[in-house]
Write a protein that binds this DNA or RNA. Sequence first.
DNA 1: GCTACCGGAATGAATATTCATTCCTATCCC
DNA 2: GGGATAGGAATGAATATTCATTCCGGTAGC
Lengths: 195, 195
Amino acid sequence: MSPQTARAEDSDKRQAILSAALELFVERGYYGTAVPAVADRAGVGAGTIYRYFKSKEDLVNALYRQCKNLLAMHVLVGIAPQAPPREQFHQLWSRLADFFRKNQQIFSFLELHHHVSYLDDESRAMEQRVLDLATSFVARLQAAKVVKPISADVIMAIVYWSFVGLGRYAQEGRLILSDENLAAAEQCVWEAIRY
Amino acid sequence: MSPQTARAEDSDKRQAILSAALELFVERGYYGTAVPAVADRAGVGAGTIYRYFKSKEDLVNALYRQCKNLLAMHVLVGIAPQAPPREQFHQLWSRLADFFRKNQQIFSFLELHHHVSYLDDESRAMEQRVLDLATSFVARLQAAKVVKPISADVIMAIVYWSFVGLGRYAQEGRLILSDENLAAAEQCVWEAIRY
DNA sequence: GCTACCGGAATGAATATTCATTCCTATCCC
DNA sequence: GGGATAGGAATGAATATTCATTCCGGTAGC
């Protein structure tokens, strides 16, 4: 058995609770999900949740931060900065697609729900950091004159939310996120932003 | 007083309830909003709501359909089909922006919340009709070889959800939906989809 | 005064959270 | 090693709150 088995952050139960909460929040939203239902799906007693999280709100914030961090790490960290710009964009797009395929629930929890009314300061701060990271990525490409010299936030909205829209339509069954569709969309979005 | 004052569809109280529900659903979502809170904000008794709507679910569906219809009418109906394609696209984009400016709450109710768990068949059918209308608009431009010959749903996701992203960032205060930003985004998105 | 509508307290179901109890495991004494 | 024991972890029934919906007494228009 590993030492310090009791570190709260990676306890099995804690993670089981987070996973169960993710599933249910995706299906019915935060307010639509009862805490005992989370406990049931996680296979723990209702009281156990409160050993790991101060409250339902604390739980949703912990989940939000874990998911946001996972997405940011997966998509933004480690894109080769010396690669040709088009290739950097391709990497970005592929990572988004890859993350979506592997973590549909996380993606839809993060982007298809409105979280403003229960996110705490720490969660908002983390969101800010992630957006700042993305902004600096865009700014670098703009400085190299390969992306249009308009507001970086406009660029980000177009790139990221185009993808969110694709993901949403895919989840609704309106389209298939095939390689073909993904490649076509990638080329469209690239043409949207290139200088 | 107008004849047939009792027609349910356009009673003042009914509309007050719908408006109050819109505000609260935008702030806290459907499950996060208590029916008596809607009554308070509408300035009516809690019981009165049930004179106009069978249930909370009936209320949210009526609201959804009214909003979706308003958006579709405002954005899609009456774009001059004989105008040059770039001009048609400009009209579409301007109408989106105009609708957003005048009806931020409606826009954010429709697009920033996850409605799947409580929408009824009629609401889903209306959504389908609106999407079909949009698809046929895209298909017409594709047939004229002015828009890329890829899946119409991919085109729609890029155009519409880019705008949704802009709206969201604007609401979060990350950017201002100035004429300048709107025009820049419009040009980007046009370049994304043009053949 | 009669009718139609309205308000908002009342109701019962559902919910988040607590807490008394049980269970498990690691330690210690023999 | 084995049995006793302590202490943290887990439980789920109980509690206090909140909610959707109902219902009945009031009231405005005729």
